[in-house]
Design a protein around this nucleic acid. Structure first.
Lengths: 173, 173
DNA sequence: CCCCAATAGTTAGGCACCTAATCAATAATG
DNA sequence: CATTATTGATTAGGTGCCTAACTATTGGGG
């Protein structure tokens, strides 16, 4: 059992939460703590699964998202705009574009309007890549939530949004 | 607006999902795809929030989890056991222990039973660190899911587990 | 008009995670 | 028993993400 690290649990239990809270004589609600801990574990797990998913196409989650965002925007966008719409730092975009450029999926062109600006453009190969992976990608994405009914998915979407809002609040401080 | 990368959306919309599906004439359910995409975005967002949370205590998510797991297990465990219970690779554990050892929060001792084995032990400083951060940690963890009622949390826990199972299935292939 | 603040992008350094390859020591097998 | 397989741990190399510190260029206010 070497290969799949995810094979282990990684998921905390209610008893663990209880024990941790009791150990310091705190008054926290074990269920709430459990949900939060599971949420973090799930986040990590889903993230890894996404990475594995995109690796099938020779991409990473970040690179795919950049490519898709570019396509959705007519095929060209500045690094700053990409950073904003992807929700990552500009430095990260630099790294993603470096990788994608090496693979010939995007190209950098100097901006005609702003002397210090770039424009990242989707190449023909990049568009082709998106076309090629689309069928399997969407099939798998559906399968990920396939166990949930339409109603459950709606509820899930709502809960997810509220929890993310909570996370935002937490980060902002 | 430079500092908070998370300030951007990062969250895909239903229209984006629809557009992407339509572009290639596929038959996927936009809602399912949206939920999957949001799930991945949420996973990334929650993960970052966790990182910010633990950074307040001079830790990372991985380092905290290792420390907590150690404490929950009587204060000592082998790297392989840690890897299994944390759900990460042994190589990752090596890196986490390196960092924690540098900070004096854990120590490595040769195993008395297995000549090639180590035992990672929680030091007094490590235990103290856990004690110090516990109150704020649990308070914040509760706040993360504070917007949800007890019933909603129960539902959420169930949905989360099923989605994670879906992710596992997806990864296994 | 010139200088200085704001902005675009990259670079440098750090952390977590992975896989694959390498050693050391133990178990298993002909 | 000697050789081989397995297992414990680390190292090497890759990716993504972050913040902070540059480099250029643009543009506003004295």
């Amino acid at each position: 059992m070497t290969q799949h690290p995810g094979t282990g649990t990684g998921a905390p239990t209610l008893d663990q939460a209880r024990r941790q809270i009791a150990r310091y004589g705190l008054t926290a609600d074990p269920q709430a703590v459990l949900v939060a801990a599971r949420l973090m574990a799930a986040g990590a797990r889903i993230g890894q699964a996404g990475e594995v998913h995109f690796a099938r196409f020779g991409l990473s989650t970040g690179r795919y998202r950049l490519l898709a965002d570019l396509e959705d925007h007519g095929g060209e966008k500045s690094p700053s705009q990409l950073a904003a719409s992807l929700g990552v730092s500009r430095a990260t975009v630099t790294g993603l574009v470096d990788g994608l450029e090496r693979e010939g999926l995007v190209a950098r062109r100097p901006s005609t309007e702003d002397g210090r600006g770039n424009v990242v453009v989707l190449t023909a190969r990049g568009a082709q890549k998106l076309r090629d992976l689309a069928p399997e990608h969407f099939t798998r994405m559906q399968a990920l939530v396939g166990d949930l009914s339409v109603e459950e998915r709606t509820v899930f979407l709502d809960l997810l949004a509220r929890v993310v809002a909570g996370a935002d609040a937490l980060t902002a401080d």
